[in-house]
Amino acid sequence: MSRRLPGRPRLESVPLDATAFHRVKRGGVDSEWEDAFALDTAAGRYALADGASASVRAADWAGHLVEGFLSDPFDLADSSALAEWIGRRCAEFTRANPDPNAETMDTGNWVRLASSARHSFATFLGVEFGRGSGQDVTVGWVGVGDCCLLVARGHHLLWSSPMGPGDSFGTHPDLISSDAGLAARSAGRSFRGRAEVAPDDLVLLMSDALAEWALGSAGAGSGSWVQLGQVDDHGFGALIDDLRDHDRIVNDDVTLVRIRVGRSAATGKGS
C-alpha cells in the first residue's frame, strides 16, 4: 500500500528524493503483500510497516499505521506520545472493524466471526527529517520491531537501527497490536534516535528480510550500497529474484524506501 499525502512545507529547503520498491513473497500474488509504506516528501516524513503474517488483517493494520504516521504527527522522541498515537490508531482501526456478534456463531460461520474479533499485529518504522540547531539536516526515527533504518555514504554503511551488522533477526520481533490495551506495552518496546545526515547520504528503510540480507556478512557490503542507491523497480525485482534463487534472503515480503539527501541544501557533516 502506498500513500502520498499532502505535505506540510516545513522542509522546503531540504531536497529529498524518495522512492519505494516492494515485492511480495515468492508464491504469493501482489494483493497478498502485507508490508506498507507511506511517503510525504514535502513534510520529510516516511514510514514502513510489516504486517505479521499470522495475524488477521495484517496488511490493513500495516497500512493504517503508515498512513497515520503522515496524517497524525507526534514527537518521535516522546515515548508517551508514541503510546497515545498507537492508542489513536487502535481506536480508529477498531471503529473501522467492529467486533461481530459471537452469539450468532455456528459451524458454518465460526471462522469469519472468530477471526473478526482478533487483533492485528505489525512491526513499524517512522522517519522524520528536520533541521538541527546549526541548520544541519537531521533524521529522527521511531520504531517497534525489526523494520530497519540504514544510512550509507558512498560505498559504506554509516550506521543502522535497531539492528546492526551481523545481528540475528530471529522470528518473533516486537509488534504493535491493534489492541488499544497493549498500546503502552508496544510503545515501551520502541527504539528511537536522531542523527545528522550529509549531502548525498542514502537513507534506507527496509523490512526485515531485506535488512537481514543487507546487514549480513553475505549482504550488500561494499559497492552494493551504490547499487541500492541507483536501482530502479526492474533492477530491484531482479536483485530480489537473484537473492531468492540463491537462498540468500528469506522468502518474505520485501520493501525498500530509499531517500537521497539533496546536495544543495543539506549542510550537516554526518555522524
Partner: peptide, 16 residues
C-alpha cells in the same frame, strides 16, 4: 486447532 485455523485467516471475509 482453533489457533491453527486462525493463523491461516488473512481476512475475515475470506476462508482460511
Amino acid at each position: 486447532l482453533y489457533e491453527l485455523v486462525m493463523r491461516c485467516v488473512k481476512n475475515p471475509t475470506e476462508g482460511p
